[in-house]
């Protein structure tokens, strides 16, 4: 178990989960093997590397980018990423004058097929409450300082609609392969709290 938890469970949570699990299995409502497989899938296969593939392709294939901006769900599905919590996707593009950042103020809506499960900070009160009121201070906490002239657009996700930020392609990356470009695309850059990484 990691020791740097940002939160501790309530005193009876673990016992309550074991009790409920035992009852649900007895009633044949859940299959523990199926759950193990789901957990493993989300731990190892469904994560921000998927979104990075979408971004790198959009950077290198203008026709794909056009399709992505017009119908994000379909263009993302072309790469094999679709399903639960990503049915209706919208991609918002960062430009010289506009930076986009995504939140879910009501809960934690997040595009699972492209980014995986959300990090704790995305689900917690400090980010959700403040990014809509003072996005610049939030971005600074992630080490992202934007020019004062850059407009910041904050997108509030909901149960039906999920956003993915298309970061700007960093300068000095002209000769790089799609695979090399993918490495520059972090989860945080697709939420919009950071920029894409600069090449080493």
């Amino acid at each position: 178990m990691p020791h740097d938890h940002h939160y501790d469970p309530l005193p009876d949570t673990e016992l309550r989960v074991r009790a409920l699990e035992s009852i649900l299995v007895e009633k044949d409502l859940v299959d523990p093997a199926a759950i193990d497989l789901l957990v493993e899938t989300y731990e190892t296969k469904i994560g921000p590397r998927n979104g990075a593939k979408v971004v790198a392709k959009a950077w290198t294939d203008p026709e794909y980018k056009k399709r992505l901006m017009e119908n994000a769900s379909a263009a993302i599905a072309e790469l094999g990423f679709s399903g639960v919590q990503g049915e209706d996707m919208v991609v918002v593009e960062n430009t010289e004058g506009v930076h986009n950042v995504v939140v879910c103020t009501l809960c934690s809506c997040y595009p699972w097929p492209t980014l995986g499960l959300p990090p704790v900070w995305y689900k917690a009160a400090p980010y959700r409450s403040r990014v809509v009121r003072d996005p610049r201070s939030v971005l600074l906490e992630f080490g992202t300082e934007l020019p004062a002239s850059t407009e910041i657009h904050v997108w509030d996700s909901n149960a039906e609609l999920r956003y993915l930020v298309l970061p700007q392609r960093p300068s000095g990356t002209d000769g790089m392969s799609v695979e090399q470009l993918e490495e520059l695309v972090s989860r945080d850059s697709m939420i919009g709290v950071k920029l894409a990484d600069m090449p080493a």
């Binding site: 178990m1 990691p2 740097d4 938890h5 940002h6 939160y7 469970p9 949570t13 673990e14 989960v17 074991r18 699990e21 859940v30 523990p32 199926a34 759950i35 193990d36 789901l38 957990v39 989300y42 731990e43 994560g47 939140v103 103020t105 009501l106 995986g116 499960l117 990090p119 704790v120 900070w121 917690a124 009160a125 400090p126 980010y127 959700r128 409450s129 403040r130 809509v132 009121r133 939030v138 906490e141 992630f142 509030d156 945080d188």
Partner: peptide, 29 residues
Amino acid sequence: LGGMEGFGPINPEENEATFHYEWEKPIFG
């Protein structure tokens, strides 16, 4: 929560694991 004040810093965790406790996994499933 949008717009509320006073919840403090965001404290993002480096290299965060998908799940933080074993008991979270069955709930997710």
